[in-house]
Simulated scan of single mutants.
Amino acid sequence: MNKLAFFLFLVFVVPATKLFAQASSSASITSRATVIEPIRIDKSVDLDFGNVISAYNPGSVVLSPDGSRIAYGVQISNSFPGNVSPAEAVVTHGSNNYSITMPESFTLYNQENPGQSLTIDEFTVAPEEGFSADIIKIGARLHLSANQLSGYYTNSTGFNVTVSYN
């Protein structure tokens, strides 16, 4: 009889438990998002190397983010410096980290003789950190050819400074 009871158990009880087995399950997932302000940069001061005196040889002037200038192969006049200023911009970033991208180089053209040009490169940036906004100061190196034609050199298109969240 034990064999009969075991057989009936297998035939009726085991399949019945399979009929009541759980075929699916679910869980409630909470979702969240934090919206942050977009990063922003606003220029406040243009980059100006001031007055530079050309020489018989090529040379350059390095304008540091702190506003100091050093001449290599050309001269600068301390008594008549002209307008000297590193570029300055305000970066609004909340409390987020960011990176700064500068161009490789930039060209300035003589307003009276556009065939004459100067090149700017080796950009340097010094941020003055704030809580949710920083002031960045930008310097660079200005290259002059030998006997560079005198005049006012500029480029109205300006160069791009890009800031991006890390």
Rank of each mutant, 00 (worst) to 15 (best):
F106W: 13
E104W: 03
F106A: 10
E112N: 13
M102F: 00
Q111C: 02
S117P: 03
S105C: 00
S117I: 08
G115M: 09
N113K: 12
E129C: 00
E104V: 07
P103G: 05
L108T: 06
P103N: 03
T124C: 00
N113V: 14
P127V: 00
Y109V: 10
E104Y: 12
A126Q: 13
Y109R: 15
Q116D: 15
F106L: 11
V125I: 11
A126K: 11
F123C: 09
E112H: 09
P127R: 06
P114F: 11
I100L: 03
P103I: 00
M102G: 02
Q116F: 09
N110Q: 04
P103D: 05
Q111R: 07
S117Y: 13
N113C: 07
T107M: 13
E122I: 00
Q111H: 03
F106Q: 03
E128R: 02
V125K: 02
T124W: 00
P127K: 05
S105F: 10
S105P: 02
Q116K: 15
F106I: 08
T101Y: 01
P114E: 11
I100T: 05
E104F: 10
I120M: 10
P114M: 12
P127E: 00
L108K: 08
D121C: 06
E112Q: 11
E128W: 00
E112C: 02
L118D: 08
P103T: 01
P114G: 12
E104A: 13
I120N: 07
L108E: 03
S117G: 10
Q116R: 14
Q111K: 12
E129K: 09
E122L: 06
P114H: 10
P103Y: 02
E128A: 06
F106H: 04
Q111M: 10
Q116P: 04
E128T: 04
T119M: 15
T107H: 09
T124L: 08
Y109D: 08
P127N: 01
T119P: 01
Q111S: 13
D121G: 08
N110D: 10
E112V: 11
T101W: 01
P127D: 01
Q116W: 05
E128Y: 00
S117N: 15
Q116L: 05
T119L: 15
A126S: 10
E122M: 02
F106S: 07
E129F: 05
S105A: 07
P114S: 12
E122N: 15
P114I: 12
E104Q: 13
T124I: 08
P127F: 05
G115Q: 15
P127T: 06
D121H: 10
T124Y: 00
F123E: 07
S117E: 13
G115A: 14
T107Y: 13
G115Y: 12
I120R: 09
L108R: 10
T124K: 08
E112K: 12
D121I: 11
D121L: 04
L108Q: 11
V125A: 01
S117D: 13
T101Q: 06
N113Q: 12
P127C: 04
